[in-house]
Every structure is written in structure tokens, then in C-alpha cells.
Design a protein around this nucleic acid. Sequence first.
DNA 1: GGTTTGTCTTGACGATGTTAATTTAACGAC
DNA 2: GTCGTTAAATTAACATCGTCAAGACAAACC
Lengths: 205, 205
Amino acid sequence: MGRPVLTDEQIHAFRARATDAAMRLFVRDGYGGFSIRALAKELGCSHATPYRYFEGKDELFAAVRAEGFRRFTAFLRARLEGVAEHDARLRALAHGYFDFARREPEAFAITFEMSQPSEGWAFVDEAAAEGWGVLHEVVGGAAAAGVLEGEVNTLAHTMWAGIHGVATLHVAGKLRMGRTGEEVVAHMIDALIRAHAPAGQETKR
Amino acid sequence: MGRPVLTDEQIHAFRARATDAAMRLFVRDGYGGFSIRALAKELGCSHATPYRYFEGKDELFAAVRAEGFRRFTAFLRARLEGVAEHDARLRALAHGYFDFARREPEAFAITFEMSQPSEGWAFVDEAAAEGWGVLHEVVGGAAAAGVLEGEVNTLAHTMWAGIHGVATLHVAGKLRMGRTGEEVVAHMIDALIRAHAPAGQETKR
DNA sequence: GGTTTGTCTTGACGATGTTAATTTAACGAC
DNA sequence: GTCGTTAAATTAACATCGTCAAGACAAACC
């Protein structure tokens, strides 16, 4: 007897609504300008209510990061939809990765920001692992088909780091001398594919 | 007449002491746990004194970032010291870049963190430009000597992004499956050099 | 010594993250 | 339908933060 305990659905619904609104507030007020009280106002509840659904600000941030990873993964999957050829899939992945960073820089920053406590919340790692899965699958497919040569794990890490570097520098506003991120990412994926092309099958520069 | 105005040296000295202590506090308390009041305690002054030397927290952060860039640049320069051959210089640059991120992850994160307000303070851009200068010089030297082929600006951006991506993912703790950053960065610089090697002069895989 | 002028400290304000106390609302039992 | 119980939601409170205004202090000049 007594008031009913919150169902898992209710908890999930609130958390989803909260992470969604938080993402919006990040975009509106910037990363540092975010406050849990502003979020509560946005949600139409008291400033202490979120504490029933999240351990605290850190877990809320972690939830936002996880959601960011999910959107990121979905975005990449959508870009790969219908692209069959392995070379084209690699390029679609690279440009999709970069476009996500360009079109939703806040979401990208929140998701991949260094020095952000993601440890201790498994759901963040899970969401991140799915994104990594897409990458690994595309690179693995290309390697299996002979488009790329080398150990798949190393290949995937290298591709990832290369693309991620361009996206990161772009979001941080560090690209200079009139170089746009699109140009650099195109050149990057080109170079990495070329570097790992099977011997005797080098593509033209 | 009246109390003497602070000399530029005094101002500079305080700012240097403050950015130094701030860097130490970042390492101790993390990026978010930093407070201007804790810094004041560390410096042995009142909590309002820093406002006489810095516009506010944002400018203090900017100063720390600029100092981070300077240390980063000095670190790279030291690594290049005495390395003459262009290929070796490229590799020294890459490994130096990564080692800085690995050995001083906080400094690296503060310096390169996305979504951090660096605009509006020219001294940050100046410090960053010097780092870029080292990179550009090494890549440009290699290109001029015929070790790399292509437009220097694009080359430099690609090299930078590739190495930066590895360093960033390492600091964010995203490298997985037993791949260490050293392995990935070695493979990365190798691939990028290979991809831009002059035609008919391909190095062995 | 007194005046003046700029530095440093103290005190205060509003806002924030978080927790404790209080109020409110939804159920079963009667 | 009322009541007691139990959990959710709100309110109140605390410590801390960034920041600024007012006061205390110190060093130069007359």
C-alpha cells in the first residue's frame, strides 16, 4: 500500500526528456552555461526533482554523452544506408563523421570532450561501443573485400583517429589558412585508403 | 604621487605564478573542480586579488591555455633538437605530440579542449600559431626535400589532424582492444608518410 | 606627519549543486 | 468515501562559486 513506485518506463521517460532538454540547453547556453536548475525550469519541475532520476550532475552529463553517442551512431548508419561499395562506404563514413561534428558541434563536443568523467557509467561505454561497432564493421568489410590491407583493428583505429582529428580541430576552430574541414577530411580519407591499398593496386594520386 | 602602479614585470610575474598554480590545480582537482578561490589560497592571497590581474575566470583560463600551448611548443622543439633527417623529424614530431598528451593529459586537454572560449584573447591565438609554426616548418621541410609530395598547407593539416586524433582519443580513454596510443600513432605517421611519398619511391609496407 | 593614490582584503550578492525537511498525491483497507 | 501509509515532488537550507563594491592598508610625494 502507499503511493506507487515509479515504473521503469516512467523513469526512462523522464530521463529521455531530461537528456533531450539538456542537449537543447547546451546548444542554447553553451557547455559551461548549463545548470541543473535551468533544466528543471525547462522541464517544468522543481530544481530538486532531477535528483530522483539522476545521481547528480555527473550522471546527467554521462546520460547526455550516451545519448550523443546514440545520435552519432544513428547519423552514421543513415549515411551508410544504401551505399554498397566498400570504398564509397569508407568515404561516406568519414564525411558523415565530419558532418555530424559540423552540424551539431555541441553534441559532438559533449560526446567526445576529453577530461569529462565517463568512467563509472557503463551505459556510456555501451553507447560508445556501438559507434565503434559501425566503424569497425565498415573498415572490416573493406579489409575483407581486399580494398584495405592490414590488421583490421589497427586499420580501424587509424581511420578513426584520422577522421576524429579533423572533426575535433574543426570544432575547436583550429583549422586555418582557408582550409575547410571538408577538404581536409576528404584528403585524409583519401590518403589513408591509398596508404593501405593492396600492393600493386595503388590508386591514382 | 601615491602608491606606485604595478609594473609590467609585476603583473607578468603574478600572471605567470597564477597560470602555473592553476595548471597544478587542474592536475590535482580536475578540470571541473578548479575554482578561482582555491587558486587564491594556493597563491596565498585573497580571493579577489586575481581580479586585478585577470579580467575574470575566462581570461585566466585563456592564459592557462596559452601557457599550455607554449609548453607544448617547447616540448616539440626539444624533441626535434638534433634530428636532421626529414623522415625522422616527421616521426619525432608525431611521437612528441603524442607523448605530450600522454605525459601531461590535463595540460593537453586544457589546451586543446573543444567548446572552450579562446576567442577574444589574441595571446591564445599567438601561442597556438607558434605550435602550428613548428608543425608547418617540419612538414614544409620534408616537402621541400622531396620526402613528401603535395601542397604544403594541406599536408600539414592532414598530418596534424592524424596525430591530433590519436592523442585526443588516447586522452579521452577511447582507444580499445589493447591498442596503445604509441602503436596507433606510429602506424598513423607511417601511413601518412607512405601516402604522400613521391611516386616511384614508395617505401616498403 | 599628512595627503594622495593605487593595491589588497573584506564583505556582500546572486547563482549553483546538493541534501534535509516538508508537503502533496496515489494507492489499499475499512 | 475516509483514512493511513508510502513514495514522489516541492520547498527550504547550506556550502561554495564567480564577481563586484566598499573599506583597510601601504607607499610615494608635499
